[in-house]
Amino acid sequence: MGIVLAAVPLLIMPYLSYVQRRAGRELGSASAVADFKQTLLYSCLSGMLLSGSNSTHSSADPGATRSSRRRSLLNTTGATGRTAVMEIELLIVPDCPNEAPAARLLRQALDDVGLRTMRFTTVVVTSPEDAEKQQFTGSPTIRVDGTDPFAEPGQPPGMACRIYHTAMGPAGVPDLATLRQALKQAADH
């Protein structure tokens, strides 16, 4: 059964990555074009699994999957050796100038706490109603298991850029050390 589960992505993923890349180019979406690399990498990893290779491969892609509704719930083994089940989301407004820095920061924090295989989902908040429903207080917002570790009480939902209070002063992304701590705490529970 495990061989079948590894073989199916090997057969399907190259086609899906081609479709993602083509659609991303047609839509002018850099994130969708970048996501095709991750899909193709997944196909390669399936091939490595089938061949019995113990090689590792890393990608410059920050590991984000862009979706307006989809959630990512993954199992991964952290630095503690325990399996963590976590849902990681990066919520943004369209054309957020801090999307790429936030995605890089989140990828670095995940790597730093030993969650190198953990992926996250980028969720695009497109309307004030969606912001209200998501309790979205600004772009970018990082959620760990549905919780915003940087939430400020009384902050109303809205379609705006978010300002984080960091040790270096106001910033468009959270502090790396605080993000690492939030991820490690979630992984340990």
Score class of each variant (00 low, 15 high):
T178V: 10
T147Y: 08
Q181L: 08
P94G: 04
T76R: 06
E132I: 04
I92G: 00
R104N: 13
L110R: 06
T166F: 03
T137Y: 06
P174D: 06
T178H: 10
Q108V: 04
E89L: 09
Q181A: 15
V125Q: 02
R71Q: 10
A167C: 01
F150W: 07
G158H: 12
P97E: 07
G172D: 06
M168D: 13
C96D: 15
P156I: 11
P140L: 04
A186E: 09
Q181F: 04
C161F: 09
E87S: 11
A186G: 03
D111R: 11
Q155F: 07
V93Y: 02
E89G: 02
A167W: 00
R116T: 10
T117S: 11
E99I: 02
G169W: 06
Q108E: 13
K133T: 14
Q155G: 04
I88L: 13
D175I: 05
R119H: 14
Q185K: 14
L115G: 00
S139V: 07
A186H: 01
F150A: 02
A171K: 11
V144I: 15
D148W: 00
T166M: 05
C96I: 03
L183E: 01
A131M: 10
L183G: 02
D112K: 00
K184S: 12
T141M: 15
L90A: 10
G138R: 00
C96H: 07
A151V: 01
C161G: 14
D145M: 04
R69P: 00
R143F: 08
V113P: 03
K133R: 15
T126M: 11
A102G: 06
E89P: 00
G138S: 11
P94K: 02
